[in-house]
Nucleic acid binder design. Sequence first.
DNA 1: CTGTATCCGGCCAGATACTG
DNA 2: CAGTATCTGGCCGGATACAG
Lengths: 129, 129
Amino acid sequence: MPVPPIDTADESEQEICRQHLQILALIGDKWTILVIGRLRDRTLRFGELHRAVTGISQRMLTRTLRQLERDGLLTRTVHPSVPPRVEYTLTELGSTLLDSLSYLAEWATTNRQQITANRRHYDATHQGD
Amino acid sequence: MPVPPIDTADESEQEICRQHLQILALIGDKWTILVIGRLRDRTLRFGELHRAVTGISQRMLTRTLRQLERDGLLTRTVHPSVPPRVEYTLTELGSTLLDSLSYLAEWATTNRQQITANRRHYDATHQGD
DNA sequence: CTGTATCCGGCCAGATACTG
DNA sequence: CAGTATCTGGCCGGATACAG
């Protein structure tokens, strides 16, 4: 069967792709990658993360951390003391995600300038439309 | 210098990370990956893409394609005929992006069920909060 | 067939204030 | 210190209608 017309039979492929997307949506938001990136090397406390990720609000940091905890990408440890001390640590699962992301990061590094150039060229040649 | 306090000196690292994010935001939206995924094997016309990507609206398909064209991830070819015929083809750049994404897709495949289980467990153990 | 133009409802992130 | 509660404005995506 060489080159089927449209290959409408692979609805399943698209379904699988959507399931992947559901997972990848994990990291598609604005802050998640920055947060787990900061946790790559070491455990950090809430306040440390808040300072480390420039511009994030308390609300968004909390939300991001909760979701990552729910997905099992990091662990949240509460030390019952005064003042309270909460530490966040990347799990093995989170660490492997970061590893997989490195390929994409490498692609971005390699092609960032090319993309910027492409955009400039497009904007220059299409501004008259 | 073993284990610096917070390592606030690597603001630059975060800057680079943000530049990466700026690029990765390309594919962080709802439709981009589905569209370029459909173009992996072959050139497709607008209408073919519209049917191939289930649920996408004309507006969103057009927007997605325009952005991908601007970034140089695909080419848009207009065949002057009646009715008009517009074909979209992945560029080398777009193809390499898809290759880099495959590592993430593999991670998603490997860990999807684990994550689903993690969520169930979290929801079960935290519903009383 | 391949788009563009317009309206519009929902969601999400930011700001702010408050709490154990 | 580590959050939660509430309000709000803006953006994004879908629906619809129209055009070359």
